[in-house]
Amino acid sequence: MRFDEFIVVDSINPNLQATTKEEAIREMAHSLVDAGKLPEDDYESLVRAIIKREELGSTGIGRGIAVPHTKHPCVQELVGTVAVSNKGVEFDSLDGEPVYVMFLLISPPNEPARHLRALELIARQLRNDTFCRFLKQARSSQDILQLITEADNNQFE
């Protein structure tokens, strides 16, 4: 799988304002609404589903990374966005550290395989220290888009 199969370019956020987990989830989900990829009417229900999933265990998996996600019938296919925070977000991460890079994934209820492949891709790329560091340092949507495009072209391997 490639980032360009699910990351909504118009929703990429290089300067997340939120500093708490719920605010960050809200801001990212709203960027998908603003990009026309999620119906406004489903916004609250979607945010609640993502937060409910976080209550089962934080998706802040350390190294300044979080991958909040949920299944929701408001999408027909996997959609995702990426946000970078300059200030850091308190995300109840495994290592107790703030989060600086977040990928939000929303899958239709019946497509666990594509969700798994997206997680695999994100994990594989973020395991690369150079990609991870550059992403945290990105300060414009164009910077982030360029990095994920380079990752799609295997330029970090």
């Binding site: 998996i61 350390g62 190294r63 990374i65 495994l94 798994l116 492949r117 997680l119 695999e120 994100i122 994990a123 594989r124 973020l126 395991r127």
Partner: peptide, 8 residues
């Protein structure tokens, strides 16, 4: 965790 996820 990150490494385990890379197994897909």
């Amino acid at each position: 965790v990150l490494q385990v996820l890379t197994l897909g």
